[in-house]
């Protein structure tokens, strides 16, 4: 597993969050949290590194020794996560209870995802933001996909935000009486993640095999 290529990091960061992907709504909240913290911590790191280094040339994301950069990332991410938790508690206590111990773990997810942004040394902030955004969306897409599979098959329902008369849960008639409840358990999460990683690896391998379809023939 090459350490720095994005897909590896993505799935690495996903591991703890899978425990929450039993219902789609929890997955949505979790992805929202991760994306929020990821973006803000990226921005904060960018500003901090530029601020502390005075007016030298374009400053690298990892100003100072790795340990210093590492500590700064730790501080920023954990405080942002704490604030997200507080916000979530106020905004949607039910969601906060559902996330449980996995809300604080967003800090670790973001450390993983924010880690080793390729080529951020001398790039304008816009590029780092796009990079982080890409990672965040990748994380959210994977998590919600797994949550969809697990909840639809595992419980026969899809729970979303209760908007007005919508009531929040879509019931799949046939499945709801005898759903594959085993998918809802921890084991199901690991299986879905395993197959998701396999599928994404197959796709990226096939994409690498013939980049634009046409020229692969030389």
């Amino acid at each position: 597993m090459k350490s720095e290529d994005p897909p590896a990091l993505l799935f690495l960061g996903l591991c703890p969050a899978i425990a929450v992907s039993v219902r789609v709504i929890d997955a949505l909240w979790m992805s929202a949290g991760v994306m929020l913290v990821l973006l803000l911590s990226g921005l904060a790191m960018e500003l901090l590194s530029r601020e502390s280094s005075g007016n030298e040339a374009r400053h690298s994301f990892d100003r100072g020794s790795p340990a210093a950069r590492w500590m700064r990332a730790l501080v920023v991410t954990s405080f942002l996560t704490a604030s997200f938790e507080a916000g979530l508690l106020a905004l949607a206590p039910a969601a906060s209870a559902a996330l449980g111990i996995y809300a604080p773990l967003i800090a670790v997810n973001c450390l993983v995802l924010g880690r080793g942004m390729p080529g951020t040394h001398n790039l304008p902030t816009r590029r780092t933001v796009v990079g982080l955004l890409g990672r965040g969306i990748g994380f959210a897409a994977s998590l919600v996909a797994i949550a969809l599979v697990r909840e639809a098959l595992g419980a026969g329902t899809i729970t979303l935000f209760a908007l007005g008369g919508f009531g929040g849960t879509i019931v799949i008639p046939m499945l709801v009486e005898q759903p594959l409840r085993a998918l809802g358990f921890a084991g199901g999460g690991l299986l879905c993640l395993g197959y998701l990683v396999a599928v994404s690896r197959a796709i990226s391998r096939r994409a690498a095999a013939n980049p634009a379809g046409g020229e692969a023939a030389q």
Binding site: F185, A186, L191, G194, V197, V199, R201
Partner: peptide
């Protein structure tokens, strides 16, 4: 090939999780 390495370990962990239930 697609499952070799990390994905297969996840599936192994998943099956083990079912066993440990």
């Amino acid at each position: 090939r697609a499952l070799k390495g990390f994905p297969l370990q996840l599936i192994t962990a998943g099956l083990m999780a079912y066993a440990f239930m």
